[in-house]
Design a protein around this nucleic acid. Structure first.
Lengths: 123, 123
DNA sequence: CCAATACTCAAGTATTTGCTTGACAATTGG
DNA sequence: CCAATTGTCAAGCAAATACTTGAGTATTGG
């Protein structure tokens, strides 16, 4: 529980399609290394390396019993991700809300000023 | 709106502390390339490259007026991230809930079986 | 007991990434 | 108009990443 790893280690862990697929698989339930490797045309070693990266990021945890290593999603690690994303989202949306109110409040006052500031999305 | 980029391109875009910092900055409001570059001891070119990566991932959008490129968070891109994370979270938590009910239901029936399946978190 | 099974480790390699520098283009304030 | 501001492009480079192979270690079903 002494991990204060920066958030980008989580993103780094998911910055690869194989690891995303593994994580998606694990969010449906625990699995062994060999199980996880099956869908991929890749050596078991490679999968093991991906799992190490996921584990170090805190997104999954693994436990070896006998010769089988069972992997599962670490709910706490996932929460770190959720929290970060939710925080950004709330910042962005709160700001867009304020902006909407501003635009509604002023009837025909210089609406160009905000566009120049880049506040307004345009396709 | 023709972007069906895989989710890992979002994660890839945030898999770097500089880009995370830029995105955090932008979630507080739009900024120019030079503004974004100020906190970093890095060339403007490098910041431009980071911005290209963020833009291609769909997480931000940029618009050039005159000689100034203004960058802002793309709410739709952020939603893609939010949705993916929320989906995994709900899968994990629903499963853990079912598990809790199972454990509560059986009084002293073989509680070891589930531990062997790796379903139960252990420190 | 022994041959699968299930990993694990070390070393090597091709590709990608995160920068740099230098030259250049476009815009704008005075 | 001209110099400063703001950004872009191309090329190059060191380090990181995503693999590989080959050899080795436990563990376990039959």
């Amino acid at each position: 529980m002494l991990d204060y790893q920066p958030i980008d280690s989580c993103f780094k862990a998911l910055a690869d399609s194989t690891r995303v697929a593994i994580f998606e698989r694990l969010s449906r339930g625990p699995a062994s290394v060999s199980d996880l490797a099956k869908p991929f045309s890749m050596s078991l070693t490679a999968i093991g390396q991906h799992l190490t990266i996921l584990e170090n990021s805190g997104l999954i945890r693994t436990r070896k019993i006998g010769r089988v290593r069972t992997c599962s999603v670490d709910a706490a690690g996932l929460s770190r991700l959720t929290d970060w994303v939710a925080e950004r989202r709330s910042l962005v949306e709160r700001r867009l809300d304020r902006l909407g109110q501003l635009l509604a409040a002023e009837d025909e006052d210089r609406p160009i000023s905000l566009i120049n500031k880049g506040e307004i999305a345009n396709e």
